[in-house]
Design a protein around this nucleic acid. Sequence first.
DNA 1: AATCATTTTCAAACCGCTTTGAATGGCTCC
DNA 2: GGAGCCATTCAAAGCGGTTTGAAAATGATT
Lengths: 341, 341
Amino acid sequence: MNLKELARKLDLSPTTVSRALNGYPEVNEATRERVAAAARRYNYKPNTRAIRLATGRAMAVGHVIPLATRHEIVNPVFADFIAGAGEVYSRNGYDMLLSVVPDDNEERVYRELKSRGTVDGVILHAPRMEDPRIPLLVELDIPFVVHGRATGTTLPYSWVDVNNRRAFQRATEFLLDLGHRRIALINGLEFMDFALRRRRGYEDALTARGLTADPAIMVSEEMTETAGYRAALHMLALDQRPTAAIVSSMIMAMGVRRGFEERGLRVGRDVSIIIHDDELSYLRNGDDVPIFTATRSSVREAGRQAADMLISLITGKVTGPQELLLEAELIIGQSTGPFTG
Amino acid sequence: MNLKELARKLDLSPTTVSRALNGYPEVNEATRERVAAAARRYNYKPNTRAIRLATGRAMAVGHVIPLATRHEIVNPVFADFIAGAGEVYSRNGYDMLLSVVPDDNEERVYRELKSRGTVDGVILHAPRMEDPRIPLLVELDIPFVVHGRATGTTLPYSWVDVNNRRAFQRATEFLLDLGHRRIALINGLEFMDFALRRRRGYEDALTARGLTADPAIMVSEEMTETAGYRAALHMLALDQRPTAAIVSSMIMAMGVRRGFEERGLRVGRDVSIIIHDDELSYLRNGDDVPIFTATRSSVREAGRQAADMLISLITGKVTGPQELLLEAELIIGQSTGPFTG
DNA sequence: AATCATTTTCAAACCGCTTTGAATGGCTCC
DNA sequence: GGAGCCATTCAAAGCGGTTTGAAAATGATT
């Protein structure tokens, strides 16, 4: 069943039927009713492909997932971010297009997205320092929103980010207040913007108390369980070992905990851990009582916000770069305790 | 730059240009060269929307992600499955469309996908016993491949699955061989087909040795860390506590380990654990030496296979229901040991 | 009743490609 | 030199909608 056929059945022109269904004012209310009823009756749904060609809009948003060619890691927060964004897209009639792309030809993909007109806008994931994709997207004139920010980029652009610096600063202060002085930072790879900011927050807090960050107890690694485990063992091997650690992700922290506990240290008593908790749906930080003390910020909510912002940009509801900084809350769990001798 | 314009520049008809670029035989090789060169020069990329309307193919595959309305969990294996499937799609010029849908109106989404012609086929995720979506998709006549199977469905359909029953049977046998007799099963929700099959494998292995499964040491829960943790505590509270456990996922097992170790039991010595390892990229089971003894099967590879199969079905390269059963391998890690008094 | 403004409907062009069926031109062959 | 045959090329008709500009119907005004 297509428009023409439906029009014929109604003894109306396609024009009128189209207008009736799309809520244009220049159509008689009685007619509109009749059309709507027929559309329901014959289960008419306008063909997406035709709409897209006719209107020139893709009614779709692209998410390009760079697949790190070396280690092939899919960002674990990705699924939840998508879930949040997806909600918003469905509500607004947009499709979500995913391209999994080896990160060495991401540029080509963006260019094609543009020239083939497959999407109306994109979400940029996992920005790095001076990320080259930002100027590229600006040049291509594709509406986009960055999940995160890119230190060193001077061009204005739209983004949704968590205040990572502030979060880690507070986490560090919290540990300092508990009496800890040797606090390890077990961070993600620091060419990732968020990791960089987290380190800054950590360093700022230390400096503010007249302490200096010790590179020996700072690691920057892939945020996997095993990397966390290795980091923990590394820390334990030091003669001046840390009494607390701030860990960039829940998964990594599970490895850290495994390392510590394997050596007989009890987390929350012998050693304190604060994590950053993205509130991943399959990796809740406990139900009622949080397992880990954490800086918490819902990545799903970030997905919703980013999608919202992007749609506003695409439809022209807003213009010019939009910015949204979400604050993380510090929640107290069972993994931290006062410094004991 | 579009086809008409390019044709004008070349002083050829759109027909010829189109044919030249699409490799049709009835075009002079010299002309084809000239066209190809011009296309490169002017960076011409055919408009996707137009191609889709003209050919009637969507050149896109849909993945409908049911969002469990009650608990809002995004399946953690999802990201890696997508990554695998995405590779195949890109290689074949297909787009991947994601719909995140509250699971109570999944049916509506499939019907729309069909009537609006947004996709050429779909992948069905997380099938359940007698999953109603299978007859629905058959009725709608959309090509589809199920990731998993649906016990109780009599209609033939295409699927890619892991031999879950066999995997868990072998895991159980392995523990039995180590002398364990009270082996817990910490499973996913058993309306999920894979969970059901895993339990069967477990029960079969026990029965084969003249043992009967004890419901007191079998739990079926959401596969989260906390659920695993609770399950472990529950087991420890029994007077006849298990000496080994088979756990349905890595994440869940991390909770189980936390529970055991919190109560002073050392995994691999005081209690044995076997997990199922989907080889999630961000959750490797150790690097060289596996942390957990595991039944292992790459979900990313499953994604690749499923996508491949679906494209074959869409293009008509194969017809009729296709089936692919992947075997899991049993790998020995550090989490299992012989039964000790 | 004629005029004019307003509401409602329609025919046709268009979006950018594919594809059918016909036309053109060169060659071979008798 | 005309018929027949390829090899190339092209005009035009889709695909299924939206949108422009004009026509028809209605109502108000004089």
